[in-house]
Design a protein around this nucleic acid. Structure first.
Lengths: 329, 329
DNA sequence: GTGAAAGCGCTAACAC
DNA sequence: GTGTTAGCGCTTTCAC
């Protein structure tokens, strides 16, 4: 920068003004400076700028994984918003590894980021205690388990979403159902389902916990469910990837969907609209959550305050497609 | 830091030594410093450290998208390797937007990152000219179109991979096939397919370009293919997501897979092993590419040199599952 | 083993 | 409009 200043016959400060378009600079001076910048191939050092300004123009995002449509949609949406505002994204995936999550949290805490968004409570329920004293804004999104009231959060009412799914199945006449549910992560979804049916109708022996959060996991769990009760007429899956596997398992067993067995998913991410039959699912506004949470953080950065500490619950809705129908007689 | 030093009755330098475990510090001094750190809740400012050391412990990754299993696997693998070495990941997705890609490139160029990995050439073939003069290591991976010889790259022989798929189908007796191919992105894959069959066997009117790189896109393209030539016995899809849609479209048309029509995919990402029938696919070692490219960069950072400029081609293989079989008579 | 001084490259605040 | 001065929080070098 000093070199540029020398070459243009000005001071560093003027170069800075030109680069940042901040103060008014006389056109001919600006031209000289720009010429010098071009000649020398000068590019400002953002680290130095960050040290001087105290802002890194970077936001951290912690997600459980990126290899699931739900979270990859969130990542993309967050990055969209950040990009629009000139911010960069530091991505951390926790991968069901609490230690890793803690390590990442510590790493980001040291002023590498201007704000932090934590999406999904899978691996980070505990270390959250560390957070409230951070010196940058933090927000949570897609938070399912006990919502800490020390931090702002944008999420949905997962219990209600589960209830919606249950109500839909119940109103179609289903009485004998199974649930393929990741536990304890998705226990609220299950609780909602049970509220719709009455707890006894979805007793523990009709709840199947997949070994992996993948279609394969859902497939195996659904096979177990059908083996345990061949008479069941509907299966609830606690998220879309599981539902994909459930759908296959039901079809594989020779049953028709939804003629013999109805299948309902959860999240309504992009891939499920194309299954055959197209999957009915509770739609979670993941992109909207990501947008709002990110906006919350950017506003907080702007105003130099902690974000308003509120719990914002977005609405969920049921997207009825072709995988659910009336219970067979 | 000065506060900590005062409280412990030492200088900033000693605090620095303690924090970094660098020089030898007398145990009692260290204890006093650590106590002061704990009391004051001191955390080192990484930005200041970066300015002093010239290293940000951050690597940039540019990918077309994160909402596809192929790239999300790469992102996860890169982050794994970085995490192991104490590095952070700055993620940029280009989203089929050349301008956005250019902007991000420019943003990262200004010493925010210690190295840059560009995976996938979808949106960044052009601005690559800007790169060679960057002052940090850069590497490419999963590069399909003309490989620039100014930068190191870890990729596969896409033409050969396409050839493998073609050979497989040909050896099963298929003669009348269609290809669902993203163009121009995947033209090498198509070229390989054609080399196996002879160009005339996969003429342009048997090539269908999906409107979107999703299962839905593959579904529509396969429907068009089947409508155009109801007699075809095999369909090649230029990547897995398309193959998922192709599979559905074939089944939907009342044909059996692989009895009537064989389907072969490309990439062999996790989801395809669970389709029914399980998808045969050319396996691309995406995680291995990501690992090697990342390792290349970390080594270059370590040694303070540009990475060795080589084109490394990993091997591909065919994973034969249940979606391909002998051509019907 | 610890301290003192200098500097990383930039911006902020004010004087001219 | 532009120059001057100070300082962001750390590491580096070298003297002690």
């Amino acid at each position: 920068m000093q070199d540029v200043a020398n070459r243009a016959g000005v001071t560093k400060q003027t170069v800075s003004n030109v680069v940042n378009g901040r103060a008014a600079v006389r056109p001919d001076t600006e031209a000289r400076v720009r010429a010098a910048i071009a000649d020398l191939g000068y590019e400002p050092n953002l680290v130095a700028r960050s040290l001087a300004t105290g802002s890194t123009m970077t936001v951290g995002l912690i997600v459980p994984t990126v290899a699931s449509p739900f979270y990859s949609e969130i990542v993309e949406e967050v990055e969209n918003v950040l990009d629009q505002h000139g911010y960069h994204l530091v991505l951390c995936t926790t991968r069901a590894d609490g230690d890793r999550a803690k390590r990442q949290l510590a790493g980001l805490s040291s002023r590498l980021v201007d704000a932090l968004l934590i999406a999904g409570d899978r691996d980070l329920t505990d270390p959250l205690a560390l957070l409230p004293d951070a010196r940058f804004p933090i927000a949570l999104c897609a938070w399912e388990t006990q919502i800490p009231d020390s931090l702002p959060v944008v999420t949905i009412d997962y219990e209600h979403a589960g209830f919606l799914a249950g109500e839909h199945l119940r109103s179609l006449g289903h009485r004998r159902i199974a649930a393929v549910v990741e536990l304890p992560t998705h226990e609220l979804r299950l609780a909602g389902l049970r509220r719709a049916f009455g707890h006894d109708k979805v007793s523990d022996d009709h709840v199947f916990v997949p070994t992996k959060p993948t279609p394969a996991g859902g497939f195996a769990a659904a096979q177990a469910a059908l083996a345990a009760d061949p008479e069941l007429t509907a299966i609830f899956a606690s998220h879309d990837l599981l539902a994909l596997g459930v759908l296959e398992a039901v079809k594989e067993s020779g049953r028709s969907v939804p003629g013999d067995v109805s299948v309902i998913g959860f999240d309504d991410t992009a891939p499920v609209a194309l299954t055959h039959p197209a999957l009915t699912a509770v739609a979670i506004p993941s992109r909207e959550m990501a947008r709002q949470a990110t906006a919350l953080l950017l506003r907080a950065i702007d105003e130099g305050t902690q974000p308003v500490n509120s719990a914002q619950l977005l609405r969920t809705s049921l997207v009825i497609r072709d995988s659910t129908g009336p219970a067979p007689r």
